[in-house]
Design a protein around this nucleic acid. Structure first.
Lengths: 255, 255
DNA sequence: GGAACGCTTCGACACCGATCAAATCTCAGC
DNA sequence: GCTGAGATTTGATCGGTGTCGAAGCGTTCC
């Protein structure tokens, strides 16, 4: 650990080691993995997740936040931590690809985490990449108006690290209503704002509320997606990816 | 560092920390960065690069190899180390994206490393992603035959970790000769095998020899690429990417 | 065959950082 | 304001690891 004379070559090439040091501790990695699907969790929960005392967890969380891997938001007497951005998710993925090839589990673990990031349920609607891509596509195609689907921390007013968003008023357009009708999805005609959540790891919005719930149900009925019993991961069937491509122009490439 | 009762949740989720520990040390990161462009270097060179004694470097190299980040090949009394595969390069890139935003250097460092991986010179010919993509395209389009451009460690016989390859006999086809003529590149008509090198981080071949040298010169004359004076990085101009797309179907997407 | 070189192993030392208990701080709720 | 819960800070302990010199092993070159 000594840093003798050779620290003179301080060209800035040792920077990545400070990030490496952050992911060198098993407990910190547990914390990162717990947040890997984009949720925001309070410190106490993360302490339990990592299996350490609150004091130790606080130390870890402080270091991760200081190092730019986590972002924190105080909410009452809780402090919610989340991944600081997509780059952190990329780092986790890169690490998982190199993680020791344990007997079988490691592969399982890896694909499970990837599946969760790709498509999952959030309460009763779609989230993950599929969720944000779906909402983006509907905005781009004029089915929704009011925002661009991007979460902007600088201008956030009331939006919480967990639960539903309020800062942006999305509304369904005529073309959007037609699309839903085509899908066989009939929502109550009330013209209230479309609800949404924030996908923190993507830093974008995904559909929630009646519309999000309705689309999830409809996709399931149409055999586009299959829900798993044990996890929140969602499997997109072949007909599903075809339908998503045709109707929304969505192609969930390997990422 | 104690691992008390909580190690019971041994689902295999702490694996990534062992990789993290490897990139937690500045000297080891120096070594990885020195190899980041796909070269294979002997231990002594890496010791100098990291600024440590041979003994310390050996310790680091052993850990990196043991952890699967490096591969080693004995060659006489030298031992050549190289990145174990593309996944390692991805990890380095993910770390660099999160590396502390130093005054100015950090950005420079990052873009420079990325540029080197993207397109660079290797002796007198093209290497990096551009180099391997170019060779792949020529094989796919029937301008070259004899191999598939992929380096296969399992079947390697004489190919060295540095320098030119010998295991595969590539030859220029008729269509290849026509293409070169169209490019205004006239090579001696001798029908000897086309020379190649191995891009270790991509684990694929790139063109060397007279053909590789000729293409580099021709691309430069045509204004497709611009060489930098100080580094081995190569800049692809707008007309260059257009020409590479038209003639070879190459699109160097952001990676 | 001997000398020089490249690399690794061994041993000893020093330092860093993870850990938890106890104290402190901050906020919610009555 | 008082009380309790969530979270962080402080302080002390302890194990792990980076460091290099010296020694050992294999290869190359003269």
């Amino acid at each position: 650990m000594r840093q003798p004379e050779s620290a003179r070559r301080v060209g800035g090439d040792t920077d990545i080691a400070v990030i490496g040091a952050l992911v060198a501790d098993p407990r910190r990695c547990r914390i990162l993995l717990a947040l890997d699907d984009g949720r925001a969790l309070p410190a106490s929960r993360l302490a339990a997740e990592a299996g350490v005392s609150p004091a130790t967890a606080s130390s870890h969380l402080g270091k991760l936040t200081e190092g730019g891997l986590l972002a924190v938001e105080a909410r009452g007497r809780h402090r919610y931590y989340r991944l600081a951005g997509p780059a952190v998710a990329h780092l986790i993925e890169a690490l998982q690809q190199l993680a020791p090839a344990l007997p079988v589990r490691s592969l399982r673990q890896h694909t499970r985490a990837r599946a969760l990031r790709e498509a999952r349920t959030c309460y009763d609607h779609l989230a993950g990449r599929l969720g944000v891509e779906l909402m983006s596509a509907m905005i781009e195609r004029g089915h929704l108006t009011g925002g661009d689907g991007v979460f902007d921390l600088a201008h956030a007013r009331r939006d919480q690290p967990t639960g539903y968003g309020h800062d942006v008023d999305y509304t369904l357009t005529e073309s959007g209503a037609e699309l839903l009708a085509d899908l066989g999805l009939h929502l109550p005609a009330r013209r209230r704002p479309v609800r949404y959540c924030i996908d923190w790891s993507e830093q974008r919005h995904h559909l929630a509320g009646a519309l999000g719930r309705g689309l999830l149900d409809r996709f399931a009925q149409a055999g586009w997606i299959r829900r798993t019993d044990t996890t929140r991961a969602i499997h997109i069937t072949d007909t599903g990816s075809q339908g998503l491509h045709d109707l929304f122009g969505i192609d969930l490439t390997p990422s």
